[in-house]
Structure formats: C-alpha cells, structure tokens
Design a protein around this nucleic acid. Structure first.
Lengths: 230, 230
DNA sequence: GCAAAAGTGTTGAGATTACACCCATGC
DNA sequence: GCATGGGTGTAATCTCAACACTTTTGC
C-alpha cells in the first residue's frame, strides 16, 4: 500500500518526512564528445560546486513535469527525450535535510542551445561526461548510473534519434554510437545492421563536404521503441 | 542539484511537498505459479482493497531499508533479493495526499512463509500474478511493471537463485523460467546452456521421487551478477 | 592527380534451434 | 512390466565478426 491513509491516520509532524527532488542528467553530443549539462550552485554547503539541474517537486506536479520544468528553464528546450533513471534516497546525500532525489536522464541534439543561467544558479554549461569535476551531493554516482543506462539503451532501443537533427548521414549516426559506447564499430557491419532494421529512410539528398557527398537519412519514426540495434 | 539548500532557502510550508512512500512487490513461485504478496487495506478510501505492502519513508532511513522493513514485518524474512523498480509520482495516485511511491521488487523462495497480518492490515496473502484482483492506488500498473522487470532480469542475470532453495534439480530450475516467462523451453537446450554458464555445481546427491531420481544442483555464488542466461 | 571520406560483399566461426530415443526408478 | 520423469547428441540455420578495394568529390 502507500503509506498514505491508514499508515499515518493523523500525520506525524511533516518535518519527519523526507523531501522529494528531481535531478536531470541531460546529454548531448558536441565536439565529438558526450557532454552533460551542469549548473553551478549559488548557496549552501555545496556553494560553488557543479551539479545536475534539479529542484524540489511541487504538490500536484508529476515527477516528469518537474524534470521537464527544470530542463526547460535552463535550455529553453521542451522537446527532449526524458526517462526516469533511478531514485537516490540515502539519508545523508544532502547534508541539509533528508532529500530523496528522483533522477531523470534526457537527450537532445546539440544545436546551439541558448543556455540560461537563471537566478537560481551561478552558472550553466556543458561538460564532457568522461571528465566531470567533483559534483555536489551524490551527483557523480548519478552521472555514472546515467551513462550506464544510456549505453544500454542505445543497444536495444531507437532513442539515438533524440540526439540527431532531422537529417543526418550514416557516418554521423555511427559516430554517436562510437562516442557513447567508447569503442569503434566496423563501418560495413554497422551500415548493414542499421539499415536492415528499417528505422531509417534514405532521403534523395546528399550532404556535400570536402569529399564525396554522403547520403542523408531520417528516422521513419521519432518515438521510442525497443529494438535490438547492436 | 537537489532542490535543497539554495532552491528554497527558507522553505515553503512543508505541506507543499509531496510525501514519500515505498511499496514492495514480493514474488515467489508456489503451486507452479508466479505469486505475489498482497495486503488488505483497513482504512481510508481504499478500505477493503488489496495492495502491495508499503509505507511512508522515515527521515534518516534509506529507501531500501524502508522496503526491507515493510517486507520483514509481513513475512519475517530478512534475506531476500531486493531491487528498486521505479518511482511512481502521479499527483492523483493517492486521493488523500500527493504521495510519491518508490516501488521495489523482491524475490524469495517459497518455503511456508508464516505471513503476519500485523496491526496495520486486515489481511495478507499470496496471489497469482496473472490474475490479480483490482488493486488500490496505481498498484496494478506497478504489478505490470514489476513482472516485466522480472522477466527481463531473468534473461540477463542470475537472480533466479533467490527463488530457489539451496538444492534443486534442473527441472525445477527450468520450471521457474517457464512459469515466469510464460513459455516452454526445450529441455536439452536449456540444460546445455545453463550448465555451460558455470553458475551451477552438481551435488553428489539425487532427489528421489516417484520416478528416476534427478541430480541435485546448487549455485556456485548466490549474489547478483549480470550474465546472458537465455 | 591526390587526399579524404563514402560506399559496398564474402567468408568462417560460433550460437541457436529443432528434434527422438534410452534410462532409472516406484508402483 | 509399465508409467513417468530424467538424461543425452546431432544437423541445419542464423547471426556476428573480420576484412580491402573502388568511387566520388574538393582542392
């Protein structure tokens, strides 16, 4: 059951309950690296340290709404892939007060997001996820967990679409896999495999660069589905 | 960040924060079926309905501790497999007050658990998971999610060990897979595959029954690990 | 014409599936 | 001696990994 009604018919003092926050790990690919959005904390014991954006959940608000709200405030982006990651509930993770944190992980294509510091934080920025600074709270653990989830989901879902613009080349797609998984993939095997899945449709266009133009592709569906990709 | 310190320097009234509960879905195999532990609610809007055991999280208590506590009170079992499932945070899932629920899923071997109703609930019992009654809160959704997770984890981890007594036959092991996955498996292929993993050690004993005695096995390690099983 | 990225097939190894008969025991 | 579940091997198919050369463009 829910702890609700019959557990505490007349409630214990509310201060005896932990608080609920959401924190969001937003990933993007930029400069050939997997990067993540961090904010710099203004006050309190973690003042000056970097952390994932987050905040307390309001009554009447869905957890996912809270996470979207936080990310929207920082990035101005509403359309991003968002999924619940894990709930961190260690009693001492926040020295100020017992605060459990429902962590989300999110993906956006990188296109010059106008990051907004807002009033709440001292700074905002993208950081390469393989070399994060020491973060506030247990956020380094959250980062590790998010990266692990991302790697796993890349292999058995189609969520890469949310890291890519509407049109892209197979080389760009492969680069994303390589950057996130941290290993190189055979180009021929990759193309054969990914095309066989029928997730992509070739466009009648090419991307012209310094060399031979590459065929552009788009996703047939831009909605999450489970499918064995690698 | 965590919503904590700088988000709400002087806090909004605490009542403006959702409450935090844990709910635990405990699975076992009994009578050749996958069963789950339910409690009958005594008071409040869901009075008389069945639900998963759970309760509010106390300050200073880990989420996992809270879940273990709830299950221990009902079953008297401390040694069970426990893993966080998902956090359900819909604002209206508990009509009394906004309560987010961190759901856990747990596994025990079935050996005549002396179930304890306790004071908090009107009743406790095992129910076949494929034919649950309508549950309180959003617990039918939690059940579906737990079953899905269990099926997935059975395929890529060794956690079946937590549904089995120390010694068992390969047929008993296979039965568990078949009951949970809901499909039959080829006996020869199953044995070959599972033995090749090296997770089991054959004992120099047999189980005598009505027919040809079966070799008994035990797990080499009874701790969770990721490994492709099926 | 040359540098650079795009595009393309084949082969071998290993894994997965499908399938049928003999064995040991209790009654 | 028969009914019941325990135990075993092989062949066909599929999947996955490894690997090198030709094409098209910009300069």
């Amino acid at each position: 059951m829910d702890g609700g009604v019959q557990a505490v018919p007349e409630q214990a003092p509310l201060a005896a309950q932990p608080r609920v926050a959401v924190d969001a790990v937003l990933f993007t690919i930029a400069d050939g690296e997997l990067q993540t959005l961090l904010v710099k904390i203004k006050n309190g014991p973690f003042r000056g340290q970097w952390a994932f954006p987050g905040g307390l959940v309001k009554v009447g608000e869905t957890l996912e709404e809270a996470a979207r709200r936080e990310l929207y405030e920082k990035t101005g982006v509403r359309d991003l892939y968002l999924e619940q990651l894990y709930t961190f509930g260690d009693a001492h993770r926040d020295p100020t007060a017992h605060t459990i944190s429902v962590a989300y992980f999110a993906l956006v294509p990188y296109f010059a997001h106008a990051l907004q510091r807002g009033e709440k934080y001292a700074d905002v920025g993208w950081f390469p996820v393989r070399s994060l600074p020491p973060l506030a709270y247990d956020h380094n653990a959250i980062a590790a967990s998010a990266l692990q989830r991302l790697q796993a989901k890349l292999s058995y879902t189609n969520i890469v679409y949310s890291l890519l613009p509407p049109e892209f080349t197979l080389a760009e797609l492969q680069d994303i896999y390589e950057v996130i998984l941290g290993r190189t993939l055979d180009r021929r095997n990759f193309r054969r495999k990914i095309l066989a899945l029928g997730l992509l449709k070739p466009l009648q266009k090419t991307r012209r660069g310094a060399h031979r133009p590459a065929m552009l592709y788009s996703f047939v569906r831009r909605s999450p589905m489970n499918i064995e990709v690698l």
